[in-house]
Amino acid sequence: MAVDHDRCVGAGQCALAAPAVFTQDDDGYSSLLPGMEDGGGDPMVRDAARACPVGAITVSEG
């Protein structure tokens, strides 16, 4: 899973949908919490990716 920081506009929908996986940095842009590169098994990760208005989140299969 990855957040494309060039596309992110800081809407924060991912952090609202899956707060155990995503956070926002000091500039308001989304990032993964430490150790959450695989989503940590959080069932809301896909919802968070769908909620991103600019499609900045990529969820890998596997």
Results as ranks from 00 to 15, higher is better:
Asp42Gly: 09
Gly10Lys: 02
Pro53Glu: 09
Gln24Ala: 12
Ala2Lys: 08
Thr58Leu: 15
Asp27Val: 13
Gly39Asp: 13
Pro43Gln: 09
Cys8Ser: 03
Val3Asn: 00
Pro19Glu: 10
Ile57Trp: 06
Ser31Met: 13
Asp27Phe: 10
His5Met: 14
Asp25Ile: 10
Ala51Phe: 05
Ala11Lys: 04
Gly62Ala: 14
Val45Arg: 15
Ala49Leu: 07
Arg50Leu: 12
Arg50Trp: 14
Ser31Asp: 12
Pro34Val: 03
Leu32Cys: 09
Asp47Tyr: 06
Cys52Glu: 05
Gly35Leu: 12
Cys52Ser: 11
Pro43Asp: 15
Met36Leu: 14
Cys14Met: 01
Asp6Phe: 04
Val21Gln: 06
Ala15Ile: 06
Met36Ala: 08
Gly28Asp: 12
Thr58Ala: 09
Thr23His: 12
Val54Phe: 12
Ala17Cys: 04
Ala51Asn: 09
Arg50Lys: 07
Val59Asp: 04
Glu61Arg: 11
Asp38Ser: 08
Arg50Gly: 10
Pro19His: 11
Gln24Pro: 00
Asp47Lys: 10
Val59Lys: 05
Pro53Ile: 05
Gly55His: 13
Val54Met: 10
Ala17Gly: 01
Val9Glu: 12
Val54Gly: 05
Cys8Thr: 02
Cys52Thr: 15
Arg7Ser: 04
Pro53Gly: 08
Leu33Asp: 06
Ala56Arg: 03
Asp4Val: 03
Ser30Asn: 01
Ser31Thr: 11
Gly40Arg: 07
Pro43Trp: 08
Cys14Glu: 08
Gly28Val: 03
Asp25Pro: 13
Ala17Lys: 09
Gly10Ser: 04
Ala15Ser: 13
Val3Pro: 01
Ala18Lys: 00
Asp42Phe: 14
Thr58Pro: 01
Ala56Lys: 01
Cys14Gly: 11
Asp26Val: 09
Pro19Trp: 04
Val9Thr: 15
Pro19Leu: 13
His5Asp: 13
Leu16Asn: 02
Asp6Cys: 03
Cys52Ile: 11
Tyr29Glu: 10
Gly12Asn: 00
Leu16Cys: 00
Cys8Asp: 11
His5Gln: 07
Gly55Asp: 11
Gly55Ser: 15
Asp4His: 01
Ala49Lys: 02
Gly55Tyr: 10
Ala20Pro: 04
Asp4Gln: 02
Ala11Trp: 05
Gly41Thr: 05
Gly35Met: 03
Arg46Asn: 06
Ala51Val: 04
Val3Thr: 02
Val9His: 03
Val3Leu: 02
Gly55Arg: 08
Ser30Tyr: 03
Arg7Leu: 05
Ala51Gln: 01
Ala15Tyr: 00
Met1Cys: 09
